[in-house]
Amino acid sequence: MSKSGKIFVISCSGIGKALGTVGRTAMYEVVEKLRPNEATTVCLPLITIGDETVLKLVRTNSCISVDGCPFQCARKNIEASKGKLVASFMVTDVLRENRGLKPEGVIELNPKGLKLASRLAEKIVRQIDETNKNR
C-alpha cells in the first residue's frame, strides 16, 4: 500500500534506554492499531543515511517525531533532511506528566512503560486528527 498522503510518525531508534522503547511502542500503537489508515512510519536510519526515496516522502508528507530522550534524534534527523515536521513529542515530557509510570526494560517494557506508551500514543493521535482537520 502506498505511504504517500499519510502522516509519518517517526520514532527514534532508542536502543540505549527504556525511553526509546516507549516511543517506539507508542508509534506502533498509532500506526498499527489506532490510526492505521491515516498514519504510517518509515525507518529513521534511512533518513540518517539520506535515502532519496525516503527523503522525498518526508519532504512531501507531514511528519511527527517521537523521541525518547533530549537528544531528539528523530526530530533533528527530520529537520536536517528538510522534512515537513508538524509536531514533536518527547517521552520525557509525557513521563513528567505521569510520574508514577516509570518505564523499565529495553527488550521488553514493564507494564508501567506500556501504559506510558499508550498515554503518548493518545497524544500522537490527537495531533494526527488535528493535522488532518486543518488540511
Binding site: C12, S13, G14, I15, G16, G20, L44, P45, I47, T48, F71, Q72, C73, A74, K76, N77, A80, V106, I107
Partner: peptide, 18 residues
C-alpha cells in the same frame, strides 16, 4: 545485556547525525 555485557557498548545510529 546478556551474552557479552562486559565486552560491548552501543550508540543510537541516528545520533551520528543528531
Amino acid at each position: 545485556e546478556k551474552l557479552r555485557p562486559d565486552d560491548t557498548v552501543t550508540i543510537c545510529l541516528p545520533l551520528f547525525l543528531a
